[in-house]
C-alpha cells in the first residue's frame, strides 16, 4: 500500500472539507478523484500532499506522515502559481535545485511533447501554462502523483496532450490521483474511481467493474452525484 487516509475529517472553521474519509491507494493505480465543485477533492489531495492537517484521523504515505515523506509526493496545485518571469529553462533550474528526484531529460522530452514554448510564464496562454506545470511535476521520480484539476479551463488540444502525457509517463511503482470534473475526457485513463459528495466518499469502484455492468465512469458520476 502506498497511502492511506483513516477516518479523516478536515474542518475549516465551521465548514467541513471532508468528513470521516477512509481510503487506501496502491502502486500501479490511476485513480480518478471525481466530484462537483466543493465536494472535497482539493482538500483530499492537500491532505495527501501534507499541505493540510486533518482535524481528525490519520494520513500516511509509505507508512509515515506526508510531510516526512514529501520527497515521494509530486503535487500539482490547481493554482496558477509559477513566477511570471519564469521560462521553462528557469523552471528546470528551480526544480533541479530543490527536488533531487527531478529528471531533466524527461522534463525536456515532456516540454517537447506538450509543445511548451520557450518564453516567460506571463507570455504563455492558460493551456501552455498548465502544460508547463504538468511537465515540472511529471518529470519527478516520485511514488505518489497528485494532480489537482490539470484539465480545468484549458483548450481541447491541451487537454488531449496532457492526457496522452499521463499515459506515456505511466510507471508501475507509482500511483496517480487525478481530480477532475471533466469526466468523459479523462475516463479512458482511470483504473479506479473515487466519487466524493459533500466531503464524503460516495463511491469507490474499479472502472472495469463499472464497464462490466454496462456503465461508463460518466454514467456512474451522474447517477451517484445527481
Amino acid at each position: 500500500m502506498l497511502a492511506r487516509l483513516s477516518n479523516v475529517t478536515k474542518r475549516y472553521g465551521r465548514t467541513e472539507g471532508v468528513h470521516d474519509l477512509s481510503l487506501e491507494l496502491y502502486p500501479g493505480q490511476a485513480v480518478g478523484l471525481l466530484g462537483l465543485n466543493g465536494s472535497g477533492k482539493t482538500t483530499t489531495l492537500k491532505l495527501l500532499a501534507g499541505m493540510l492537517f486533518p482535524t481528525q484521523g490519520r494520513v500516511e504515505v509509505l507508512g509515515k506522515s506526508p510531510r516526512e515523506n514529501r520527497g515521494q509526493i509530486a503535487y500539482l496545485s490547481d493554482a496558477d502559481n509559477l513566477y511570471a518571469w519564469m521560462t521553462p529553462g528557469d523552471a528546470e533550474r528551480f526544480m533541479r535545485g530543490l527536488y533531487p528526484d527531478f529528471n531533466p531529460r524527461r522534463y525536456r522530452e515532456l516540454l517537447a511533447f506538450l509543445e511548451v514554448p520557450q518564453q516567460s510564464y506571463r507570455a504563455m496562454s492558460r493551456g501552455q501554462r498548465a502544460r508547463l506545470r504538468l511537465a515540472m511535476v511529471l518529470a519527478r521520480d516520485a511514488r505518489l502523483f497528485l494532480l489537482d484539476e490539470p484539465l480545468s479551463g484549458i483548450d481541447v488540444i491541451s487537454r488531449d496532450r496532457i492526457l496522452k502525457s499521463l499515459v506515456l509517463e505511466w510507471r508501475e511503482e507509482a500511483c496517480l490521483v487525478l481530480s477532475t470534473h471533466e469526466v468523459s475526457e479523462a475516463e479512458g485513463i482511470f483504473e479506479r474511481v473515487l466519487l466524493l459528495r459533500e466531503g464524503r466518499l460516495a463511491m469507490d469502484a474499479l472502472a472495469e467493474d463499472l464497464r462490466a455492468k454496462g456503465q461508463s465512469v460518466k454514467d456512474a458520476f451522474i447517477e451517484v452525484l445527481s
Binding site: A49, M51, R70, G71, Y75, S77, A79, N81, L98
Partner: peptide
C-alpha cells in the same frame, strides 16, 4: 496569496 508556497513546501529541503 499566489499559492507559490506549494512549490516550496513540496520540496524535501
Amino acid at each position: 496569496r499566489a499559492g507559490r508556497w506549494a512549490l516550496l513546501l513540496g520540496s524535501p529541503q
